[in-house]
Amino acid sequence: MYVKKEHILAWLKDCAAIFVEQRDFLTQLDADIGDADHGLNMNRGFERVAEKVPSMEKQDIGTIMKTTGMTLLSSVGGASGPLYGTFYIRAAGVVVGKEKLTLEEMVNMLSAGVEGVVSRGKANIGDKTMCDVWWPVVDAGNVAIEQGFTLEKALELMVQAAEEGVIATIEMQAKKGRASYLGKRSIGHQDPGATSSMMMVQSLQRIVSAG
């Protein structure tokens, strides 16, 4: 079983649909500890990405990921624009020319993306950021590779890690981004960036397992 190019395109379209649906929810999470724009920004960015999907159908996965990253970079704004933009651009770098990905290649791709995010945003474990979802997701993927699990099973474990990662952000005190100015008052709130990242992982799993 592979993650095919068609899956990636379907995933991007599905993300666009999710961020229409979850726009207000994400914005409300951001209103609690940030500046009340995360849902709106993700919605705007992925709407632009979805518009480009038809023109990306003949491209390889690397090019698709790069185009997605550049589009997010120029349409999202805020901190999430450069961070998600960098995620896709750096992920693109390790899947150049690919039409389909093995489990190992997919985990490798996500891992490269996360490294890019960390080099831009300099987050550490427990800072209450999207990385608190991405690190456990990549770890779960690597464990699945070691254990010789199927792609499908691996994605289920990655979703579980993402969901647990989001829950874990609730008790964290923000050390990065605008929520950090609240100090201890940021504790008790779910991180919006971690939440949108979790939604992206859930979507990837749903799309790939649907075949």
Binding site: S74, G77, G81
Partner: peptide, 11 residues
Amino acid sequence: PGEIFTSPTPD
């Protein structure tokens, strides 16, 4: 100018 309370984008 970016969107409301949102930084502008690099382009």
